[in-house]
Design a protein around this nucleic acid. Structure first.
Lengths: 333, 333
DNA sequence: CTGAAAGCGCTTACAG
DNA sequence: CTGAAAGCGCTTACAG
């Protein structure tokens, strides 16, 4: 009843276990004859190599970790985030690496996560949502593992081996604002993301820079990327500035919340108010009215993050990747 | 620069590596003197035991897998689900087990997940959302690992060692319906969950049974637990039965969608229509009007699932656990 | 192309 | 209480 090991296969195939190992690892110099015998034995027994023995012998874990700074409700309820994970899984599909998801948030969790990484369980790291102050990133600067960040590089100490795979946040914001301006908007408000997030801050700065001297802090309101926060944020902005003629939201879900507030206040979109989202998630096209937005190749970002990490683990020298965004015009503008 | 091993610690502490190992594993018969010397050496060097070597020697993985049948947007956007994961992490906090999250959905992913499990990477399994037809469960009946299901036991072949840790779905439904009836409702509609899910089906059956002869299929509409689906579902029900006087939703988010539809159709809640949710998630109390609902101890379910699994792994014989639900009355009824 | 052997870093009876 | 030794299941130079 005990698991079958490499010795069983060697005996069955009539070769040494060294040869079995070579077949298993696709070593080129193995005779056709041995190779066949070994595979036959493997199929017969349903043998699988013991991962721990292999890791012990090779010094590699064959696993990478997915880091999530704050595993809040907001994050889990972010469809964009789910798609990013999908992309990561896409990228892993052809490898035999396993994915360990590590979440921070509370002090205990942050500590556990850092400690898990330092215990040497994984060969590389992908950080899904870097925060300025997140304890995971803070605990990692002296870590020798390669790290890929899905988002702008935060201005804090990072492990030596770090790469960024992200979208052009600032460019996307400018595309949105240019479009709203071209539609005749004069007073453009913005609903931003969680200010602890690096990418949310970059988007806010791009908004401020674009407006230049005419930037008015009262026209900006932070949210949490969820619909509820968009609803509340637009209400606040309208209370301060009833004459706003456009609102740019840093996520489609917040834009949908904003549509709701506009509806409740009797404002017609796009006649009285232009509304734009960000992401081009599926819900954008289904909104009422369909939402103009900025499309980002989120799934591809996840996929590319894995490729970059694998290259780094293999000792190559990949480069940062910044994906362009695309303007998608629908009825809301 | 190479990692410090148990030999380094043994040398530093002036003992054999056997003794180091005993200290590490909390073996009782070690002299105070040795114990102190070993701990001092460990702190000095920041030593951590190599998990693969340990697993190879003990035959245990010190890891459990969290199974997720369909990692769809809907699921990720389910706050209840996020809380279940929180509970699992709570339960794991004091152990040194690691958590591997395995997701199914596509054929490739289901296959990979089953294959990962069979490769012997983990010591036990927790299935978060069993589906009737999910390929993960289907691939597991001949698996020797203990499995804990967070949901009703599906009527399909399961591994020998399986336990259920869940809430009393049927009881919760009856609590809701009794309450609505006590408020004078005569025509109670229901918006259910994804019919592929076992728990959604149990809730539907409880609804049908409660109504008995007066059950009318036209008063039932399935959803996906999300707000959008609740919105659409209530609209459909009202189109067929304008005189419905109460609607019971299998999630708070669907109930919020239903509130939206009621609002748009000019129906006042609770005067014209009673609306109830399920879960008692934070959003229920914040809804307008605040939502009556059925509270389930979701986080505790996650925590208990881990405890049950750990007991099973340790060779004990835990029992199934079914948590009662509680009626929470607010303004929507 | 392939076998014998050493080694990866732990744990755990076995003696003492 | 503790050391020496065998063993967990692989990989990989080293010879041949």
């Amino acid at each position: 009843m005990s698991r079958t090991t490499i010795n069983d296969i060697a005996a069955l195939a009539g070769v040494s276990k060294g040869t079995v190992s070579r077949v298993l690892n696709g070593h080129p110099r193995v005779s056709e004859r041995s190779r066949e015998a070994v595979w036959r034995a493997i199929e017969q027994t349903g043998y699988r190599a013991n991962v721990h023995a292999r890791s012990l012998a090779t010094g590699r874990n064959n696993a990478i970790a997915l880091l999530i700074a704050a595993a809040s409700d907001q994050l889990f309820s972010d469809p964009t985030f789910a798609e990013l994970i999908e992309g990561v899984r896409d990228g892993l599909l052809e490898t035999d690496l396993s994915l360990v998801i590590l979440m921070g948030g509370s002090e205990t969790e942050d500590h556990r996560t850092v400690s898990y990484i330092k215990a040497g369980h994984v060969d590389g790291l992908i950080h899904l949502n870097p925060f300025f102050d997140d304890a995971i990133t803070a605990g990692l600067p002296d870590c020798a593992l390669p790290l890929v960040l899905c988002g702008p590089r935060p201005p804090i100490p990072l492990p030596r081996q770090n790469w960024v795979v992200t979208l052009d946040d600032a460019g996307g914001v400018r595309q949105a604002l240019d479009h709203l301006a071209s539609r005749g908007a004069h007073k453009i408000a913005m609903i931003g993301g969680d200010p602890r997030g690096v990418s949310a801050t970059v988007r806010f700065q791009a908004y401020r820079d674009w407006l230049g001297a005419s930037f008015d802090p009262d026209l900006f309101e932070p949210g949490d990327y969820g619909a509820g926060s968009g609803q509340v944020a637009l209400a606040r902005i309208l209370d301060r500035h009833p004459r706003v003629d456009a609102v740019f939201c840093a996520s489609d879900r917040m834009a949908i919340g904003a549509l709701e507030t506009a509806y409740r206040r009797g404002l017609h979109v796009p006649e009285d108010l232009l509304v734009m989202g960000f992401d081009d998630h599926r819900i954008a096209a289904l909104a009422d009215p369909p939402l103009s937005t900025i499309r980002q190749p989120i799934r591809e970002i996840g996929r590319t993050a894995v490729q970059t990490l694998l290259a780094a683990i293999a000792g190559e020298t990949p480069s940062d990747k910044v994906f362009p965004t695309h303007l998608v015009v629908r009825d809301s503008t």
